[in-house]
Computed example of a mutant assay.
Amino acid sequence: MVKIFRTIDNNVHQINEAQEGSWIALINPTATEIVEIAEKYNIDVDHLRAPLDEEERSRIEVEDHYTLILVDIPMIEERNDKEWYGTIPMGIVVTDDKIFTVCLEDTPVLSSFMDGRVRNFFTYKRTRFILQILYRNASLYLHYLRIIDKKSDEVEQKLHKSQRNQELIELLELQKSLVYFTTSLRSNEVVLEKLLKVENIKQYPEDTELLEDVIIENKQAIEMTNIYSGILSGTTEAFASIISNNLNIVMKFLATVTIVMSIPTMIFSAYGMNLKSIGMPFADNSMGFLYVILLSLVFSILVAIVFRKKDLF
């Protein structure tokens, strides 16, 4: 899908034909659309295809008449009927009079610009537009990190009540999301540092403060990711140890009960052998059956008391 936007009378409008100062958004474009855009605006096809590869790394490539900026953006994906978080690449191609964005999905990073919800946004101010996109991207990371923190608290509360594998799996999924975020944010940090040195991207004095804000937001997202990742790792290990300890307690209790119950079993087994009554205690006594049961109970109770004193019950 190809959408074209342009600022007209300080408002963003979707138009049919690209003009000078336009923004061309490619959302999960087809192979035909990519080739058409590449030929029409003299852009390398591989540079337009690069953001469509989920494994593509963040970078900046400077060509003669355009610059490619590739960054990772956060996204929501559904697995097992639940929402989890990951990252996908997004490409920004800046030419002399236009700006192109390429992404696999319709991301909230760009939809806010399309809907005109970003203040002081003009499609023809390309440098500021790039910085605004990067700022929105870092802010979206922070937003998703807060959601992950809340989800981890909810899972932790569930684990206090019901220590099941499902909750531990959810914690592992959240940890996986944080690993994706950490890797992507660090790659984006390298891109931001290189962006300061790219001569093709003009650094206007009024945009300097915005660039500083972008770098600060990205660093804050990295710090939050590291903190939440450490907390989640500690929580997962703690609850895994608790579950393992509870299992050990149950196994110890069952082993103790088995030992106590084995005493009357051994006595009854001895009396159940096909032996003569001579030499068998209480064999000729009319109350012998009762005596054997009482003897078994006495021994079992004595062993149980010993185990109780050793805190095995």
Rank of each mutant, 00 (worst) to 15 (best):
A238L: 14
G116Q: 12
N245C: 03
H160Q: 12
L145T: 10
F5H: 07
R308N: 13
E170I: 05
L247F: 09
K161S: 09
I88H: 04
V12R: 01
S241Q: 11
G279N: 04
R136W: 07
E223C: 00
F239H: 03
I34E: 12
I60A: 04
A283S: 15
F181I: 02
V109P: 03
K176F: 03
K202Q: 15
Y141L: 03
R79V: 01
E39H: 06
L275Y: 09
I148M: 10
I148T: 08
A38D: 07
H13L: 01
T67S: 08
K197Y: 05
S162F: 05
I8H: 02
T258F: 09
R117H: 12
E17Y: 10
C103K: 02
L247E: 00
T95K: 03
F253G: 03
G21N: 08
E54G: 00
T265Y: 03
W23Q: 08
Y204F: 15
A31M: 08
K158A: 09
L174M: 15
M280Y: 09
S152L: 10
I243K: 15
V155A: 09
V198M: 10
D46V: 08
Y85H: 06
K197N: 14
L295R: 03
D81Y: 10
I267H: 06
A240Q: 14
Y180P: 02
N218P: 06
E209N: 11
V71C: 13
I43V: 13
N246E: 13
E237I: 11
V179L: 15
R164H: 02
Q166C: 02
L70P: 06
D53N: 14
L192D: 09
N285S: 14
M75V: 11
N188T: 04
I37R: 04
I231L: 15
L104T: 11
D97S: 12
D153P: 01
Y180M: 00
R57G: 06
L302P: 05
Q175I: 01
T127M: 07
E206K: 15
I301Q: 03
L192R: 09
E56K: 08
L172S: 14
I76R: 14
K3A: 08
M224Q: 11
T95V: 02
E156Q: 06
S269W: 05
T101E: 05
T87K: 01
I24V: 01
R117L: 10
G91K: 05
V298W: 06
D207N: 12
W23F: 10
F181T: 06
R146L: 10
N226W: 00
I15E: 10
L110W: 01
I301M: 13
D64M: 07
F268T: 14
I24L: 01
Y144V: 04
T127N: 15
L178P: 07
